[in-house]
Simulated scan of single mutants.
Amino acid sequence: MNDCVLLKIEQGIATITLNRPLQGNAIDLPLAQALLKAVITCDQATEVQCVLLTGSGKLFCAGGDLDAFVAAGNGIPGFLSELAGTLHLAVSRLMRMEKPLVVLVNGAAAGAGMSLSLVGDIVLAEAGSSFTPAYGAIGLSPDGSLSWLLPRLVGLRSAQEIIMLNQRVGADQAKALGLITRVVEAEQLHVEGMAVARSLAAMHVPALGRVRRLLLDTLGTPLETQLEHEARSISMLATHAYVLDKVGAFVAQRTQKNKKELSHG
Rank of each mutant, 00 (worst) to 15 (best):
D143N: 11
G75E: 12
L215Y: 06
V196W: 11
S145L: 10
N2Y: 01
T218M: 10
M236T: 13
G265W: 11
L219I: 14
L124H: 11
L35Y: 01
K246H: 14
L223H: 06
T181S: 15
A68P: 10
Q256D: 15
Y135C: 04
H204L: 12
G75S: 13
S115G: 14
G111R: 08
T46I: 02
L214F: 06
G144D: 11
Y135D: 07
V123F: 07
A32R: 01
M236L: 14
P206Q: 05
V154R: 02
K260I: 10
Q256M: 13
L219S: 15
Q33M: 04
A90N: 00
P151G: 06
T54C: 00
G107R: 05
T86L: 08
C4R: 05
L262M: 15
L29V: 05
G265K: 14
V48D: 02
N258V: 14
L118H: 03
L227G: 05
I180Y: 01
M164F: 12
L124W: 09
N19H: 13
V205W: 02
D172Q: 15
A134N: 12
R157K: 03
L87S: 09
S199H: 15
P30Y: 07
R212T: 05
L118M: 10
A159D: 10
E228G: 12
Q256E: 15
I13C: 10
I9R: 00
R254E: 14
D43W: 06
A71V: 04
G209H: 08
L244E: 14
G144F: 12
K246S: 15
I40A: 05
V243I: 14
A238N: 09
D65K: 01
E261P: 04
H240M: 08
A207Q: 09
E126W: 03
V211M: 12
S130N: 11
A38Y: 00
L101S: 03
P142C: 07
G139I: 06
Q226S: 08
R210E: 14
Q256Y: 10
I9Q: 01
L177Q: 12
E161W: 09
T15Q: 05
M114A: 15
E261I: 12
V105M: 06
G220F: 07
G24T: 00
V251T: 06
T239V: 05
D3G: 00
N258G: 10
G78F: 11
V70L: 09
V154F: 09
L6E: 09
S117C: 10
C50D: 11
G111V: 06
E261G: 04
T46V: 05
A241H: 07
G155D: 08
T255K: 11
I180K: 00
R213N: 02
L36H: 03
S141C: 02
E187C: 13
G55Y: 04
G193Y: 09
L52E: 04
